[in-house]
Design a protein around this nucleic acid. Structure first.
Lengths: 337, 337
DNA sequence: ACTGGGGACTAGAGCGCTCTAGTATTTCCC
DNA sequence: GGGAAATACTAGAGCGCTCTAGTCCCCAGT
């Protein structure tokens, strides 16, 4: 029994019949390949329009035995991921590839997202800030090209596109040092992608400035709550004059929390975030931060992904694209008072 | 020429050969339908495991001529949408339906997202806070079941699931009035989904309290920036003692901006947001707000969507589920000073 | 002993496309 | 005017599944 009594979906055959041509010709027109006269093309398109026909992706992909699809795994609640995803859509436009989204969230882990994407036979996978283990990523990479975005990974199996977080963290410290700060604390991101690099960059910069002994890293995280918790710890001990935070969310939580304690920013404390996310740009927050170039990360990632697909398995392994960060000075940093 | 020299994808036939059964049997096992003995099931699963086989969704769906997929259109940058999407994944678990995501963003409009979803032959569409015109939605609804979430819409064509925004706005006003406020301004959301209802609820509540003449609506929007702009306007005129904002983002922008102007909240101004989004819960923001129940919105939406699919075109038209909102009192509202 | 029924399994025809191999028809160039 | 080459089009075999209509075999009932 067919319980659904909507009209059956219109297929290529319907369009062909209406236009008075063969199915193959309709296929030719819709794929935009040569082999049809302009008038026929016109006629086919008109027929399709009248029937409001759209080619069935599933069948199209099945038939060509290529999916022309790149899977994207992203964190549903990560603002920065959303920016990269948007940029990926822009980049995909010119490549002829489609994007399939796999959402990861607290109640739906990355592995699930990946599995569902594999079911769609993506030709490559772009993982944005994945928290999967390196082993898991390498295993995946055996099956299809994998590009990891925004996470440093030493592996020959996958390509990596990331911001130079080491340089970013260093730039933050140097900016603060340039303003006369010496007591600079880093609130880190724990095991989050990028956290280790930023921590290393921070330490290296402190050493280079001869502030080695004053380097302090306190545990933070990637959410506002983490920033708030870090603020408590920060204010309890000997107060630094400046802080570099793992990301803008953490920084903004920290900012709000210290301001609530009557500590003025940047008067009493300078603060640098990371990512240049939306929140940093708000005039009421105006966070000095290190910007990641989502557009370049996205276009590089897609380029690597489709490049690898085209080259097949025998291409150069484990390429890495490092995009330089950019210091954006706003109003949470000032000369040490 | 086959440029890609990865091993060809493993198919059902491979599994069948390895397990020594027919393809059909493998299909039976993977669909979990009766018709295979426990031992055979075991054997097939083992074979699939060894080959790390996953059924090809495209083919599976093509073959069954059902996609068992519900398309979800959401705003990539809307925190609240992300919450609903996550809840939808949870709800989908029990229905046997899969979710396909269609992302809308400033550089990728909803129509594109919808078109791409249609290409995957979704059986129904869930539109979260769509900005599409009513006509466009109705046209869509002729082709497949459509459920609109978080936007009031008077139509027979689609089902609607929304929070009772009228009641929500009223609850906000009543809460403030209960604290002695009389001069209460509403910062609205313009043409955003839900904005009109909330505005009406605000006006109705003010009237009911005999504060009709003091009702003031100033233009806002759904972003922090909109809130900041509204703050400027707010502080320029005769200052109210309380504000209800269109959503939490708008409220938090407003909050930061007025605090920057040395206006204490809630001492000098009480503020109520809407949505109970993440940001409202931050201890440094602690925004009193009207919570929308994303989980219930999501489960109702999915229920309606699959219900309509099951019933076919002849089912009750234009159902509406209205989920009650909930006042969450935090620390941005206080008795009028 | 014969029938009937049910469980386990298979053959094979789709699903709506793509794409190779082909058939007409026209054009072009000595 | 005849062959080559290009252009416009079609036939039909897949792609990897699902699912209907079987086949086969074993056992209960009479």
């Amino acid at each position: 029994m067919r319980s659904n009594n909507r009209p059956p979906a219109v297929t290529m055959a319907d369009v062909a019949a209406r236009a008075g041509v063969s199915r193959a010709l309709v296929s030719i027109v819709f794929r935009g390949v040569p082999g049809a006269s302009p008038e026929t093309r016109q006629r086919v398109m008109a027929a399709a329009e009248q029937l409001s026909y759209r080619p069935d992706q599933r069948a199209r992909l099945l038939g060509s035995n290529r999916s022309r699809t790149v899977g994207v795994v992203f964190g549903l609640h990560h603002e920065f991921h959303a920016e990269v995803v948007e940029a990926l859509f822009g980049a995909a436009e010119t490549t002829g590839y489609d994007l399939a989204l796999g959402a990861a969230a607290p109640t739906r882990d990355e592995a699930r997202a990946v599995q569902s994407l594999l079911g769609y036979r993506c030709e490559a996978l772009v993982l944005i800030g994945p928290t999967l283990s390196q082993a898991a990523i390498e295993e995946l990479a055996e099956r299809l090209p994998v590009v990891v975005v925004a996470r440093a990974l030493r592996t020959q199996a996958a390509d990596v596109v990331r911001t130079d977080d080491f340089a970013g963290a260093r730039a933050a410290v140097e900016h603060l040092a340039g303003l006369g700060h010496q007591s600079i604390v880093h609130v880190d991101g724990g095991r989050s992608p990028g956290a280790a690099e930023r921590r290393r960059g921070y330490r290296a910069a402190m050493s280079a400035l001869g502030l080695e002994s004053r380097a302090v890293v306190i545990p933070g995280g990637l959410t506002e709550e983490d920033g708030e918790r870090a603020a408590a710890e920060l204010l309890a001990g000997t107060r630094p004059t400046a802080v570099t935070a793992f990301n803008d969310h953490c920084a903004s939580g920290l900012l709000a929390a210290v301001r609530a304690q009557e500590v003025s920013v940047p008067g009493g404390l300078s603060l640098v975030g990371y990512d240049d996310s939306h929140v940093a740009g708000l005039s009421s927050v105006a966070l000095t931060t290190i910007a990641q170039d989502a557009t370049r990360l996205a276009s590089s990632a897609l380029e690597l992904a489709v490049g690898r697909v085209a080259e097949g398995a025998d291409c150069a392994a484990g390429r890495e694209v490092v995009v330089p960060p950019r210091l954006v000075v706003r109003r949470t940093t000032a000369r040490v008072g």
